[in-house]
């Protein structure tokens, strides 16, 4: 059924901290590694060793430069982008076959690869680019929130989280129930002002992004300036030593404009 279920109390999702993400791609690669052999597999990349490698990945890490107003410096923000498991996902309602669905019990948006016809309409309906087509299997693929990990009692309890969360070395990815206002992830969102992507489109994403923290004073981070010449005896001594030790002809060849042998500064 591609009609949406009544919103569940439980809303499993991710909270991504843009302040601590270092853009290392560990989440993307561990996602690919886990999902290539699980329910969504094989997630084949075509021409994997060649120049035009392409294939479905559920997690893409963008890098953005943010120029803050009134500052002449900018900062880099690493920005992982994956399915946001929206509360009102258009990708589900446009599906003509019922292959695309939102789970009533926990809100996870999934695709049934056995009934998907590969019409790609869901990828057109998603503003976040979360769905990618598997050219080798002829069906759409997407983030499953590692549904085959989070309920998998064969795994150790600490491993029952999405592969991307488990892999993140800086703890920038958090998994939990965003429908429960007292959960760790909900408290984190509240504390850090977590936000939705493209909220005006009305798909009500479950995943939240935590904004980068405000910059500390960066004045002290500038390159230390060279000290001015003070004309002291000690400096003259160093100048003399520098002149003596400098191979004049080599210096002239390396730096033809400046063969004075004078210390800069």
């Amino acid at each position: 059924m591609t009609s949406l279920p009544t919103p569940s109390a439980k809303k499993l999702g991710l909270v991504i901290d843009l302040d601590t993400c270092v853009g290392c791609q560990a989440c993307a690669t561990s996602c690919k590694e886990w999902n290539a052999q699980g329910d969504s597999g094989p997630l084949t990349d075509t021409d994997p060793q060649g120049k035009n490698v392409t294939g479905p990945w559920f997690n893409r890490i963008h890098g953005y430069e943010v120029k803050e107003q009134g500052r002449d410096d900018s900062r880099i923000v690493n920005f992982p982008r994956s399915c946001l498991h929206c509360e009102e996902p258009a990708c589900v309602t446009v599906c003509p076959t019922g292959a695309s669905y939102k789970r009533a019990e926990d809100g996870i948006v999934l695709i049934n690869p056995d009934t998907c016809i590969g019409c790609k309409l869901c990828s057109w309906a998603c503003p976040y680019g979360a769905r990618e087509y598997d050219y080798t299997q002829g069906v759409m693929k997407k983030c499953t929130l590692c549904v085959d990990r989070i309920y998998n009692t064969n795994l150790e309890p600490e491993d029952q989280v999405p592969a991307c969360v488990k892999a993140c070395p800086t703890g920038a990815r958090h998994f939990g129930d965003l429908g429960d206002t007292s959960s760790d992830v909900s408290l984190l969102v509240k504390e850090r002002g977590g936000y939705d992507l493209l909220p005006e489109m009305g798909y009500k994403p479950t995943n939240k992004y935590l904004p980068p923290r405000a910059r500390r004073n960066t004045e002290q981070a500038h390159i230390e300036k060279l000290p001015k010449s003070d004309g002291s005896t000690m400096e003259k001594l160093f100048l003399w030593a520098d002149k003596l030790l400098s191979n004049k002809s080599a210096s002239a060849a390396a730096n033809p404009q400046d063969d004075s042998g004078k210390l800069e500064g």
């Binding site: 993307a28 893409r60 953005y64």
Partner: peptide, 24 residues
């Protein structure tokens, strides 16, 4: 609004070195 990073945002690094389905 898409990135939530404010007016001064611009692309710095693309997430993949070759085309993906979304780009095609």
């Amino acid at each position: 609004a898409a990135t939530g990073l404010g007016e001064g945002v611009r692309q710095w690094e693309v997430p993949h070195t070759s085309m993906n389905f979304i780009m095609k």
